[in-house]
Design a protein around this nucleic acid. Structure first.
Lengths: 343, 343
DNA sequence: CTGCATCGAGACAGCGCTACCTTAGTGCCT
DNA sequence: AGGCACTAAGGTAGCGCTGTCTCGATGCAG
């Protein structure tokens, strides 16, 4: 009925192949292959002919055939712990912007803050023989670690830093960020400082640790004011934990939240209950999500260079995939305290 | 130095192949292939032997080889207009949940509300010979349309409905949603109703159209109260447009926003300026983002079944990929008006 | 003018898997 | 008992591309 081109009796794709391009250009298939891949040992004249032929036929390589023949794909796997709080979207977008123009495919995996799920994704994606791995943080199962090591695939770790291990990583010091948070609140004359963190991923814990250390140094650390829950971070949860903490510890005068959505929830709940921010309690968030500067009062937060991390990590990956070593494997992209009305 | 298994002089992957599995199981490679794919014509006894062998060798198929041999991949392409406002995350997650367990790879493309970028992505992904396409809405370039048609790849359209064209689509009536919004605000006794929309994608326009129609029917339509901007939807923009509208039209007593982030921005700006919501202006959002119910006052919104749409679309896709036709190609998943404090 | 290094292009084979066809084996009907 | 349909398993070939080796052409020194 339909005028489909490839009827039964042929297993072909129907799309033009490299052979046809080569024939049209009057060269051998292998020369056409080299010409299109930009391998140096082809005369510029021939390269042009091949490119012209490819364009004319609307030729696009068959990634499957290429992957099979060369035993490696053109894809880079990115594993992130979450997509649902905008945190990693900026990073992902930046990675795409760097890698796609170079002809790499970006495979995204969301492991929902689960080490086991990450291991699963890793195992799955390994089958695709990816050219590179962009991973989040260092907290993973031992099998995951072994898989990565054994695969010999270039790997860049994002978000955290670890100068000890000699790994390629692009991020910032979560510990220092926690310290900065504490120092800022202390500089505001606050004495009863709390930390509220959810999700309890490695980075949330590290920030809490930095916060704690700074408070201990100031002699103001009180373990009762450390609220940690494995529940996932959300606006609703932030409001809830905020009210709970104030009910049990009415003297708290500053709270550092492990993520902006928690802090936003606290601000909203404070408004609802008539709690004056920052007069009664100063509130400091983390990540500086787009909405934070619009909150009432405007939320002070620590801005994290999520876009820059993605970009830089992807650039490192390009270097590694080209077979070179990265000059500075550990890249501290820093962070920036944004002081606004809530502190 | 390193104890890598595959030294030079071999082009193999180093991973176990189907041949090795077959040898270990004592069957022919093709039988092993069929056994692992679950093709029916293999004795259960042999299937078990093959599966055991595969497990023992830690065998994973080589997707490139499979794709090359069968002239089709195991991947499904999903194209969404944005990742940065959480709207499509729920849908994507649901799609993953349905397709991954069935062994399909989900390739995500973000076309940033650009028809040209969508066309580009489509062209790119076609090279991967995807098994299916999950697309957002119907507004695309003519070339995109032709590409989809010519490819003969099963396609499901999400978010909007179009019963005319005989396409598979899963969504809800954007027009009806706009009407519902207007009717709700009218039922609250409001007379000067405005619509504020950004991004101007097809769906935002359709909602505006539904809203307008309902107002015309009520004899309360005023084109001056329709604020449309191609700028991308954000909290900041919402606040800005809200203040502008109130400055130029102080008599407005209700506003329907095309997206919740705009409405949230308006609520925050209203609070900042001391504008009473809903007394002076009723505010109604769209999509019911997670934060909306926590706003002050709690934001009334129209909840859209984003998760259900993703799930259903993926299920339809499974049916189509299995070679069957879908019983009900047009699936209206509805929407739900959530009345809260802001109206 | 010859010999040797260098470079560009092609021949060949094979990556790992599955479509297609064939063959062997089973039960059932006449 | 013989032939037939039907099912289960295997043999063969090839999907489209690229790594490796080979070969011919070129340039230059001796």
């Amino acid at each position: 009925m339909n005028t489909t081109k490839n009827d039964k009796n042929t297993r072909t794709t129907g799309r033009p192949t490299l052979n046809e391009v080569a024939r049209l250009a009057g060269v051998s298939p292998i020369t056409a292959s080299r010409a299109l891949r930009g391998v140096s040992t082809v005369a510029t004249e021939l390269v042009e002919k091949v490119q012209k032929a490819a364009l004319e036929l609307n030729y696009v390589v068959n990634p499957a055939a290429r992957a099979l023949a060369s035993a490696q794909s053109q894809s880079v796997v990115v594993l992130v712990p979450s997509l649902s709080n905008l945190l990693f979207i900026d990073t992902l977008e930046a990675i795409h912007r760097v890698l796609r123009p170079k002809g790499f495919e970006v495979l995204i995996g969301n492991f929902h803050y689960s080490r086991d799920e990450e291991e699963n994704l890793l195992r799955n994606y390994m089958a695709y023989q990816p050219r590179g791995l962009l991973l989040t943080g260092f907290d993973r199962t031992e099998s995951s670690r072994r898989m990565i090591e054994a695969s010999n695939i270039p790997c860049v770790y994002m978000m955290e830093l670890d100068s000890a291990a000699g790994l390629n990583c692009v991020g910032f010091s979560q510990l220092a960020a926690g310290e900065t948070a504490a120092e800022h609140l202390l500089s505001r004359g606050r004495k009863r400082l709390a930390y509220i963190g959810a999700q309890l991923d490695q980075r949330t814990l590290l920030r809490g640790e930095g916060f704690r250390k700074a408070l201990q140094k100031a002699g103001l650390y009180d373990p009762d004011l450390e609220v940690l829950t494995p529940r996932s971070s959300s606006v609703g949860l932030g409001g809830e934990l905020f009210l709970q903490l104030l009910a049990s510890h009415p003297d708290v005068d500053a709270i550092f939240f492990g993520n902006d959505d928690l802090a936003q929830g606290a601000l909203l709940e404070a408004m609802r209950c008539g709690i004056k921010i920052p007069e009664q309690v100063a509130i400091l968030g983390f990540n500086d999500l787009p909405m934070s500067e619009h909150m009432v009062p405007r939320l002070s937060s620590i801005n994290t260079p999520r876009e820059a991390i993605g970009r830089r990590a992807a650039e490192q990956m390009l270097t590694l995939m080209a077979g070179n070593t990265v000059a500075r494997p550990v890249q501290d992209m820093g962070f920036e305290l944004k002081v606004r009305e809530s502190t």
